[in-house]
Every structure is written in C-alpha cells, then in structure tokens.
C-alpha cells in the first residue's frame, strides 16, 4: 500500500514544477526523470507492449502484485520518457480501482497538456488510456 494518495502525488508534482520559470529547466528535469526511470524489462520492449505514436514510441507493461498494479514503461524519446516517468510515479503501485477512476489533472497543471493532444501522436495519450484500461481489466478480474 502506498502512503500518499494518487492526488497527493499529483499535487506534489505540481509543486515541484512550480519551481521552474523556464521551459528548458522543465525539460532538463524531465530528462533527468526519464534517465532515472526504472528500466523496463528488455523482454517487454517488443511490439506486444508497444504503444505506437507517430512521433515517439512508448512501451508499457503492467502486472498485478499483491493487489496493486505495477507499471513499468519506456520511450525512445527522452522527454517523452520523462513524462512517462511521471505517469508511472502517479499510477504505479495503486489498486486497480484507483487507477481506473484516476483523474490525471497534473499534466495540464504543469504545462504539458500539449503533449497529450491526439494530434501530437507521441504515445502519451494512448499510454494514459492504456493504464486505465489495465486498471479496469484487473479490477474486473478481481471482482
């Protein structure tokens, strides 16, 4: 069980990003987060787990571990990967029910909303949807 709620983590991320006035600082931070992201098991870095974006690619793996969903993920573009890391930070280790109902408002609040527009096609919007679908699937299976 995680001690902070999903929204508490989102609020913490929003606070972190408030330190940055400059876009480049924000990006540098995302690059750092991307580099620190727990690696995806190489055997999961294949088409089965690929979320195809036209601009960048994202891989997402999920498994149920003691009643919570563990997400691991990767991207071929490092800034995308930084945002992936944030999504993993918010969503991983939570109960399927929380994940399926999550309202992910932090992306908008930290000024990265453009990265979630369908036309960007960088895999992130699809990744968010996929995470919630995993939440739903595990929730239904557990019932």
């Amino acid at each position: 069980m995680r001690s902070m709620t999903l929204n508490e983590i989102q609020d913490e991320i929003i606070d972190d990003f408030e330190l940055f006035d400059e876009w480049m600082d924000k990006y540098n931070y995302l690059i750092e987060l991307g580099n620190q992201l727990e690696p995806l098991n190489p055997k999961h870095k294949n088409n089965e787990y690929l979320i195809e974006g036209c601009q960048s690619k994202v891989w997402l793996h999920a498994e149920l571990d003691n009643g919570s969903v563990k997400f691991t993920a990767d991207s071929d573009a490092i800034i995308t990967k930084g945002i992936v890391a944030l999504l993993v930070k918010v969503m991983s280790g939570r109960k399927p029910e929380e994940i399926k109902d999550a309202d992910l408002y932090f992306i908008d609040r930290i000024g990265l909303k453009e990265n979630l527009s369908p036309t960007r096609s960088n895999g992130l919007l699809a990744m968010m949807k996929q995470m919630k679908l995993y939440g739903l699937a595990f929730f239904v299976r557990d019932e």
Partner: peptide, 12 residues
C-alpha cells in the same frame, strides 16, 4: 538524439 526531443526544445 531523438528527433522528437530535438523538436520540442527547438520549439521552445
């Protein structure tokens, strides 16, 4: 360097 990362920085 991934072209998308480069593009995002160039944009800003």
């Amino acid at each position: 360097i991934h072209q998308y990362d480069a593009g995002m920085i160039i944009d800003k």
